[in-house]
Design a protein around this nucleic acid. Structure first.
Lengths: 208, 208, 208, 208
DNA sequence: TATGAATGAGATTTCATTCAT
DNA sequence: CATGAATGAAATCTCATTCAT
């Protein structure tokens, strides 16, 4: 009847609802199929298995967000932090871009970040933290180590990476409206940058 | 056989391992019992049910941490933020105390914070965040609103509460050694206090 | 394999056997499934749970018997007992009808009356007794109380209700053949009516 | 400590409560022991198993009631029904005696009659009915068959045996007070005897 | 006498997945 | 393209009973 796509779309829509409500592990294939008005077997024509269904909802978003992030980090890594002077608002372009992407794919991102436990995406937050940690961190370490008697505080670097990422997660969970999100991000970014700028340096003897 | 206490302890140890590895919901009572070398029925002699077993691992810690936190928040709520001037290191006593408690019960705290989904403790992180949010937040709002043309940015308050708590969670996950943890917490706390002090004020027209 | 309906029917048949033999509470789902030649999960495709399986065997019968009874009692309640003169056999139509229904659903009725402990039907006998007690009883009490110096003996009314119902239960257990059952019911009904007519009156001073 | 008997008595008392409340099958040995303030093992010192515990509560009563019944039936069997003319109240001695015994052992009798499903006593009601059926029945059949063109209606005999027994069961369940029970039994017995006297005769051609 | 730990077999139910049709 | 039946393995929990101490 040409409802090839219809059924697939319906399944995806119902799966999104179910995964959102209960998370991957506690979601029920039966419920998804029932809501979609098909029988349990049907889903296996379109998707390999439960995880395949989840993937279909998030993978595009996952790929593009990771790519955008990678690109941004690569560019940032080239910057010379030593000569860097922060002026209020100068990270805005990237922040605006990423917030736009996140909100444009609100559900998929939420699934990835908060509902993926039990899938291959379950460590995606940690992955992103590690990427930022490595990228920013390497750069920071290089810069700090060139200052005599000083060194980078690796724990602070990792923690700042952590809360930077969690800030975006927090955003999606707590602020529905993209414009409000942008307004909130201004002071938040200021504060984070303040951290990166002022608190990652420590005296060399503090080392273990 | 003199293993009067041994079995109970063994069960607790194996349960700790299993819950740590898989979280409460995905942990298997069978596995726990098998590892402990007893039959599935045995556990029900010592503990009411799966959640009772989990409780036995975490409840003492839960109670004492919550009490300590409550006490600290009550004291803090009396402070006058308007006249407050932060001097580096002046939160140390409480921070040292709480870090000590957390590390003394490292596993239990980890179970509570990260592995308790499916139990009555599953919202403990949110509870703590809300407690801090209300306590610090109320105080901050009072102070800010008394400044003409200004108001408190509630999103920032909630976010700062959030990352403050997550900082302790982060600690337990990433730093095994209590002394290193304390050293890390100095700059981290400075940074957080910097946030509470400098970034929660916004112009009144910014309001929606 | 064309056993679309066969399995469901087989499950019902095996369940009937098992429930008949052991009663609801002591019946084993495993046994039922094993006898039916399917795995334990299969039954949950057709029925919600153990009680759902039981319901499937008895609910239709339950509904129709209760309806028939209700209808009969409503009609009877209008009769004027004071002017009532029993003529042998004049209850036959209803008795014949109900006996016909009971025998047409012999197994279901037996399950309902004797094997339903643990289900929502477990008090069905008491319910029926209470219905009869209220209906006949109310009428009897009205009639008796209008006689000076006399009153209805409530214990007798309840007991007559009780043995009236138990007579039908007795029937199903002891007489396999509907025709014989009808023949037996003639004198039995005569005797019961004799009870209702002659033994429910007591002197007023007999009261406590 | 000489509390040999105390523990045993306590166990019996708690078992009586538990069996009364839930019936044999659904009673829990753990509950009984907990209520009695001993551990699960203790009961197996005094009683062989769950059924042994139940037996200890009912067997004496079972034996004596059965003996009394047997004796009464044996005497009755010798009577010549043909020359028997019922005068109101002439069964009272035996009825009074049996009611006295039943009420003196109210709990034990109730356990036997209504709570024994799952034990060797579970068919005790049917046994008693069969005893009465055989005894009264045999006598009745002999008498009836000596009347030309007539015969005994075996179904009526069995049914009358049935409701006669159920009347005593009904009594224990519905009337707490022995004196009230006696008062109720007068008209009830009249009615039952009326049944035995008037309704067990049928024409010979009615036979199957 | 009585304890307290442990057994072992059983119970019902859930669920993703498969496959002939 | 989809159905509907069935699988099979897993889950948690209950309970009478046993036995060394």
């Amino acid at each position: 009847m040409g409802n090839d796509l219809e059924t697939r779309e319906k399944l995806l829509a119902c799966a999104r609802e179910e995964f959102m409500a209960k998370g991957f592990a506690n979601a029920s294939m039966r419920q998804i199929c029932t809501k979609a008005g098909v029988t349990t077997g049907a889903v296996y024509f379109f998707f390999k298995d439960k995880e395949g269904l989840f993937s279909a909802l998030v993978d595009d978003t996952y790929q593009s967000v990771m790519q955008a992030l990678q690109k941004h980090l690569t560019e940032d890594a080239k910057e010379d932090l030593a000569s860097y002077v922060h002026e209020p608002g100068d990270h805005d372009p990237f922040v605006e871009e990423i917030i736009h992407v996140l909100y444009a794919n609100h559900d998929a991102v939420t699934l990835l970040l908060s509902k993926s436990s039990g899938t291959k995406y379950e460590h995606v937050v940690d992955q992103v933290i590690d990427m930022i940690d490595s990228s920013f961190g390497e750069n920071a370490i290089r810069t700090c180590d060139s200052i005599p008697g000083k060194q980078a505080n690796r724990y602070m670097i990792h923690w700042l990476s952590h809360i930077s990422v969690m800030t975006f997660v927090h955003l999606l969970t707590h602020i529905k409206d993209e414009k409000k999100a942008l307004r909130f991000m201004k002071p938040a970014m200021e504060h984070l940058i303040c951290g990166w700028t002022n608190y990652i340096l420590e005296d060399k003897q503090d080392n273990e």
